[in-house]
Structures are given as C-alpha cells and as structure tokens.
Amino acid sequence: MNYNWNWSVLWADPYLGWLISGVQWTFAVALAAWVIAFALGILIGVGRTLPSKPISFICTCYVELFRNVPLLVQMFIWYFAVPEIMPEDVGRWMKRDMPNPEYVTAVVALGLYTASRVAEQVRSGIQAVGSGLTSAAYANGLSTAQTYRYVLLPISFRLIVPPMTSEFLTIFKNSSLALTIGLLELTAQSQQIAEFTFQGFEAFTAATVIYVVIALFATMIAQTLERFTKIPGFVGKG
C-alpha cells in the first residue's frame, strides 16, 4: 500500500481551523435540533397515548410520516422544495434573506425527524408503566392530566433515560447529513482536508476520534443520569 503518512497536517494552518469549525457546526446543529426534538417528541409521544382518538391519530400519522422517509430526503425537501411551495414572499425570504439557510434547514429537518423517534421512546415508556398503575391512579381520584403529570410521565422518564441518551448520540451522528446541503460540519471538513492534502487516513481518523469522544461523553452523562434518577427497589418492565 503506497501511502505517505503525515500526521502533522492536522495541526497545520488552516486545517486545524477547519476541523475546529467543523466541530463547532456539528455541535450547533445537534444541540439546536435536540431542543426541538425533545420538546416536540414529548408532546407527540404523550399525544399518542392519550384516550382522545383524533389526537392520537394525528400523532401516529406524524410519527409514521417522519419515520418512513429517509432523513436525507427530508432535508432536501426542506431545503429545496419547501421554499418553492411557500407563498411567494415567504419563499423569496427563505431563499435570499434568511440568515444561514443551510443551518436553519438542517436544524429544522433533523429536529422534526428526531422528534418522531423521541415520540416513540416516550410512548413505549408510558406504556411500560403498566395499566395497573394507571387504574390505581384513576381509582385514587386523579384526573387524566394529574395521572400523566404525577405518575405516568415521572416513571416513564426514568425508564427511557437509556434509549434517550442513545437518541442524543444519534442526533450528533445524523448532523453529518447537513453536509449534503452545504453545511461544513465535522465530517464535511474531514473530507475537505482529505481532498486538499491527500492525507485521507489522518483526516478521517481525526473525525473518527472526535465522534468517539462525543460518544464517550454521552455514555458518561447517561450513566450519571441513570444513577440520579434511579427509583429505589424498582426494576420496571423496560
């Protein structure tokens, strides 16, 4: 295998700057999208379990729609198609005057997509709590809203900490799709460095190492969270 190794290229200007910029964009996309995904996902997940048939139907449609279309297609639709479908002025603003269109689109697309996944976790968490407890809460005189607030949601949140942290990590990985609409996040930057310097191995290793570090941090946070939210003596059905 003919290959000239040159690890110093990673520390050289401007490549180090590229890497750092890439990391910053990755975090910016992932964290902003997570806020949307978390907030919306909880609403939709709860909505799916509510006794009201219209609400749970709408929420189910949302989840099925966003789950069965690849994220890449969703991102393209938001970036290319939506500005065309919008009424003229909105469309024009989106294409010309909106600041950072790649960033905003990536955040919206990734956020809405991940929300459907979060919704599924929340739903299975609520269902894992068990109908016996729900009956007991109702029998105790609690209303539906009170039952969700004091019994179902607190317990289900503790149950879904592990899969939720997995979703949090996934959003970091999925942020790489933003490169398809031109956002120079970490993976894109490593590709750039590889093309400019022909030092593909070094460039991709750098990106890999950074992602692994992010993953390790996410796991540590997960374990700490699990320890804090543990219910003494409760094993749960999850």
């Binding site: 016996g132 407890l133 007991a136 409760f234």
Partner: peptide
Amino acid sequence: QHFELYPH
C-alpha cells in the same frame, strides 16, 4: 391485587 403503589 398487585398493590399498585406509585414506585417513584
């Protein structure tokens, strides 16, 4: 039958 105390 299964007590159903709020475990948390």
